[in-house]
Amino acid sequence: MTTTAERTAPSRRTQLKFVLVLGGLTAFGPLSIDMYLPALPRMAADLHAADSTVQLTLSAFIVGLALGQLVLGPLSDALGRRGPLLAGLALYVVGSVLCAVSPDVWLLVAARFVQSLGAAAGIVIARATVRDLFSGTAMTKFFSTLMLVSGLAPILAPLIGGQLLTWTSWRGVFVVLTAFGALLLAVVVFFLPEPSATRSPLRLGPVLRTYGRLALDRSFAGYALASGLLFASLFAYISGSSFALQGVYGLSPQAYSVVFGANGVGIVLAGQLNGRLVGRVPERALLRSGLLLGVTGGALVLASVVFRAPLALLLVSLFLLVSSIGLVMPNASSLALAAHARSAGAASALLGVLQFVVGALATPLVGLGGPGTAVPMAATMAGFAVLALVAYLALARKPS
C-alpha cells in the first residue's frame, strides 16, 4: 500500500487494551465452534439423536455467523459500533444459556443459531473497529497483533473443551462459553468507547447499494477473494487433517494434537513476523509473499500425498501452508478496508462472510475419496491456495 496519512497512534497501554478486547471478540468464532467439538458424541447419546442431526448444531452456527455479519456490519455503520456490539454480546449470552439447558437436539440447533448471531457481532464489529481506530501501516500492524489472539483460539479451544469434559458434561462447555460472553459484555461496557464518528443511512436500498459497490470494486474483491480462498484451504485442513493424519498415516490422537497445535503456532509466528515487517516492506508485497508461500505449501502437500513421501515432508508442507494465513489475513484485511472508512462495517461483513461461505464449500470436497486416502484433502488445499493467488493477481489493483 502506498503511504497513507496515519491517525494519531494510541498509547501503548491503550493499544494493549484494544488488543485484548478486540482479540477476545474475534475469538468468538473459533471458541464457539472448536470448544464443543470433543463433546459431539456425548451430546448425541444424551439427546438420543443421530450424529448427523447433532452436526446440524455446527451448520446452524456457521449459517448464523454469515447472516449475522451481513446484517450487523451495516447496522454498526449506521448506529455506531457500541450499540449493536452490546446487543450482540447480550444475544450471545442468552443463546449460550439456551444451549446449556436445551432438552432436545432441535432446541439446541435453534439455540446455536441464536448464539451465532451474537458471535457475528463480535467478529464483524471488531474488524470494523480496527478500521475506525487505525489507518495505513498502523492498521496492518494491529491486524498482525490480533493474529496472536485469533491464532491461539483454535489451538486452545479443543484442548479446553476436552479438559472440561473430564469433569463436567457437554452442558458445562456452554456454561463456560456463557461466562466468556458475559465477561466480554462487561469489558465492552466499561472499557471500549464508541470508536466511529461517521454514520451511514440505515435503509435497505443504500445498504444493498453499498454491498453492490463493494462487490464490484475490483481491488476489494481481489483482496477479499484472496483471503477467503486461502481460508478455504485452512477449512479443508481443519476438516480433513484428523482423518488423514490419523487414519491414513497412523498418528495417535496425542501426536495429531501436537501437529495441530504446531501449525497453529505457525500462524501466530507468521502474524508476528508480518507485524515487524510492515512499514519496511509494502503490504502488497507481504500479501503476495504469503500467497506464494501458501501455493508452495499446497503443492508440496499434494506432491507428498500423491507420491507417498515420508510423513516428515508432509508435516513441513502443512506447516508452510497453514502458516501462510498469518501473512495473508492481516494484509488482505487492511488493504481491503483501507478505502472504505464510511462503510467499514459492511466491508468487514463481506470479508467475514466470504471466508465462511467459501470455507463451507471446500469442506465437503475433502471427503470425496473416502476414509482411506488423503488425496482429496491435499488437492482441495492446493487448489484453493492457487485460486487465492490467481484472484489477487487478476483483480487487486496496485494503488496509484
Score class of each variant (00 low, 15 high):
R7Q: 07
Q15F: 05
Q15I: 10
V19W: 01
G24E: 07
D34V: 15
P38Y: 08
R42W: 14
D46N: 13
A50C: 07
T57V: 14
S59I: 15
L70D: 03
V71H: 11
R81I: 15
V93H: 02
V93M: 07
V94C: 00
V101S: 14
S102M: 05
P103N: 08
D104C: 00
L108D: 04
V109H: 04
V109P: 00
A128H: 12
D132I: 07
S135G: 08
A138W: 02
T140E: 09
F142R: 02
F143S: 03
T145I: 10
T145M: 14
P154H: 12
L156T: 08
G161N: 13
L164A: 13
S169K: 05
F174H: 09
F174I: 07
V176Q: 09
T178V: 00
T178W: 00
L185P: 01
F190T: 15
P206N: 07
R213S: 09
L214M: 12
A215W: 06
Y223W: 07
Y223N: 12
A226G: 13
G228R: 02
S233P: 05
L234Q: 09
Y237W: 11
G240E: 03
F243A: 09
Q246M: 11
G247M: 07
V248M: 13
P253E: 05
Q254L: 13
Q254T: 13
S257C: 02
I267Y: 09
Q272F: 14
G279P: 15
V281C: 05
G290N: 05
L293I: 00
T296N: 02
G297I: 12
G298Q: 03
G298R: 00
S304I: 04
V305F: 13
A309E: 14
L311C: 11
S317N: 10
L321T: 11
I325E: 10
G326T: 10
A336E: 08
L337V: 04
A338K: 06
A346S: 06
A349F: 15
L350R: 03
V353I: 08
F356N: 08
A362C: 06
A362V: 10
T363Y: 15
V366N: 04
V366G: 00
A374W: 06
A382K: 02
L387Y: 12
Y392C: 06
Y392H: 13
Y392R: 01
L393S: 11
